[in-house]
Nucleic acid binder design. Structure first.
Lengths: 298, 298
DNA sequence: TCGATCTGCTGCTAAAAAGGACCCAGCCTA
DNA sequence: TAGGCTGGGTCCTTTTTAGCAGCAGATCGA
C-alpha cells in the first residue's frame, strides 16, 4: 500500500531519532524523506518533530500522529490478512514476543503444529521481559505476547492463562533425585543456580525464601536458562525452571523434580494482546491454538 | 491528507454503486477513478468490487476494506481535531443525527452555547430514526446520535441518558387545560393527533392504551411535530410530545400539560456514539456538554 | 429485433508528485 | 577552531496521476 508508506516513514523516523538514519533504514535519500515529512506536516498544518542539531524528536502532535499511524499500518496489514483468508489461502506474518522459557520447546512445537496446517503463515519470535513486551504490543511491533510475570498492565488484554509450577533441575546423579517432590528447604543446602533478579522465577523463589526466613545465596546467577541447565548437569548445584520451559525429552544428564512452593503454586503464564486491537487472522488463529493448548494442560 | 484520498474514492464509489456517478461526485473523470481503484485492487491483490453492466458493488473483500477505510478516514479527522486542540484553537466539524424532537429547541440552544465558547467548531445536524442513526454512526457519517427510542443496539455506546416524560399539547382554550396533570384516559374522548406508528412517543401511547384495554384512533397521523403542534392550536384535538421537544416559550395558542403514563414515566433519550470509537475533540466536548445538561435536568 | 443508453475499461498525452544527487548553513563536540 | 553531525534547499529524473476520447459489452424500451 503505497499510500500508507508515509506512515512508515514517520514511524521509522520517530524511532531512529534522525532523518538521515531513518532514510538509511528505508533505503531512500534523506532529502526525499525530509520532504515527505515536511509535506505531511504541511497537510496537517503543524510540525510533528522537534528539530535539533542532533536529530529530531516527536512533539506532542507527532506523538498523537504516530500512534494513529502505527495502528493504521497494523490494521491495513490485518485487512490484507483477512482478505487472504477470504481467498482461502491463509497467509501473513505472526509476530510474537515471549519470555525466554518459551523458546526452547513450547513455541517451536506450537509453531510447527500451526504451520503444518497453514504453511503460508510466517512467524517472528522475539524474547522480551514484561515491560519490553508491553512496548512491543503498543508500537504494533508484536501481535502477541506470552509472558510469565505477575504484571497485568492496563494495555494488555489477556487471551488465556495457565498456571506454571516451578521445577528444580539437577544432574541425574544428584542425591535429591531420590525424592519425587521437593521443597525449597530441601534444596537450600546445595549450591543454587538461579535466574537473575528481575526474572519471575527468581521472584517466586525469593518470596518463598522470605517465608522461610532465609535468603537465597546463588553460586551462579544467569539470565540464560540454557546455561543454567547445562551447568547443573555437571555439578551438584540445583537450578529452577517453569514447566513450559522443560523439554519433554529429558536432557542428557539432568533430572527434574516438581518444587512445592507454599507462597504460590506457580506463577501465571499469560497469552496477551494489545487491549482492543483486532488481530490479523493468522495471529488470532494462532492465539486460539495456544489458548486451547493452555486449556488442555490445566 | 492526499494519501487517504483513495479511501474516500472507494467509499464514495461503494455508496454510489457506479464508478461514473462516484467520479461525478468527486469531480474527477471516471477513467481516473477507475484506474485508482484498479491500482488499489492490484496492491491488495484482490478485486474489491463486483463489476456489472449496471454498475459496481462491493464484494466481501471490499466490504471489509471500506469498513477499515471509513474508520481510518474518521480517525485521521479525529487526529487533525486533536492537533488543532493542542494548538489551542478548537476547530472541526461535529456531525449529529437526532430525533425530530431535538430540532426545534434543544439542539439549537446547545449548539449556540457551545459555539459561544468555541466559534471554530461547525455543526452538521441530520434527522433520523433509530435505525438510520445507527447506520450513520457505523459509516462514520455522524459522530453523535441523540435518539429517543427504546433501541439499545450493540453498536451503540450510550454516553448519557435522560428520562423524558410525555406532554399533551392542545389549544390554549381547550377544556383540558383546566387540569394541571392529565392521564391518557382524560384525552381519549377528544380527537387525537398522533405521531406515526414507528415513532417512540406513539409506541408509549399505544402501550398505555393497551393497558387501558382500548385502542387509539387518531384523526390525524403525522411524522411532523411542527404540523401536529400547529394543528392542535386551531382545533380541539390533542397532540403529544416529549419534554425536550417543547419550547420554553409557550407557542401562541397552545398549552402543554404533563401526561401521567402508568406503563412508563417517560421513555429514555439517549446520547450515543459508535461503540469503541474515540471521537474528535469537538464532538467529545460537545457530548460532555450535553451529558451535563442531561444530568442537571434530572 | 434493433437502437439508444447505460456500464466499466483502455490507449494516449499532459501535468503533478515523488525520489535522487548534491550542496549549504547551523550546531555540537572534541 | 576543525570536523562531523544535523536538517533543509535546489535541480533534475523518474514515477504516478489526471484528463480526453473512444472501445466493447450489457441492459432496457420501443
Amino acid at each position: 500500500m503505497r499510500n500508507i508508506l508515509i506512515y512508515k516513514y514517520i514511524d521509522v523516523t520517530a524511532r531512529a531519532g534522525s532523518v538521515r538514519k531513518a532514510a538509511e533504514i528505508l533505503s531512500i535519500t534523506p532529502s526525499s524523506l525530509n520532504r515527505r515529512i515536511q509535506s505531511l506536516e504541511l497537510e496537517l498544518d503543524t510540525p510533528l518533530f522537534e528539530r535539533h542539531a542532533k536529530g529530531v524528536r516527536l512533539n506532542p502532535a507527532g506523538e498523537h500522529a504516530v500512534h494513529v499511524f502505527r495502528r493504521h499500518i497494523a490494521e491495513i496489514a490485518e485487512l490484507k490478512s483477512r482478505i487472504e483468508d477470504l481467498k482461502g489461502a491463509r497467509r501473513g506474518t505472526v509476530s510474537i514476543v515471549c519470555s525466554q522459557s518459551l523458546l526452547p520447546t513450547f513455541l517451536p512445537k506450537q509453531i510447527q503444529a500451526y504451520r503444518d496446517e497453514f504453511p503460508g503463515v510466517e512467524f517472528r519470535v522475539h524474547m522480551a521481559d514484561g515491560e519490553a513486551a508491553e512496548h512491543a504490543l503498543i508500537t504494533y511491533d508484536a501481535d502477541l505476547a506470552i509472558i510469565y510475570s505477575p504484571l497485568a498492565m492496563e494495555n494488555f488484554e489477556t487471551i488465556a492463562t495457565i498456571r506454571q509450577p516451578v521445577f528444580a533441575i539437577m544432574s541425574a546423579s544428584h542425591k535429591l533425585t531420590k525424592k519425587k517432590k521437593l521443597r525449597l528447604s530441601d534444596c537450600i543446602d546445595y549450591p543454587l543456580a538461579l535466574p537473575k533478579i528481575p526474572y519471575a522465577v527468581r521472584n517466586l523463589l525469593d518470596l518463598e525464601a522470605k517465608r522461610l526466613n532465609t535468603t537465597l545465596r546463588p553460586i551462579v546467577e544467569t539470565e540464560s536458562y540454557i546455561f543454567l541447565r547445562n551447568y547443573v548437569a555437571s555439578s551438584n548445584a540445583i537450578g529452577f525452571e517453569i514447566e513450559v520451559g522443560l523439554s519433554q525429552d529429558v536432557i542428557d544428564g539432568t533430572a527434574v523434580r516438581p518444587l512445592d512452593l507454599r507462597v504460590n503454586d506457580g506463577g501465571l503464564l499469560h497469552l496477551a494482546q494489545l487491549r482492543g486491537r483486532s488481530l490479523p487472522v493468522g495471529a488470532a488463529k494462532f492465539a486460539e491454538q495456544i489458548a486451547t493448548s493452555f486449556a488442555s494442560d490445566t
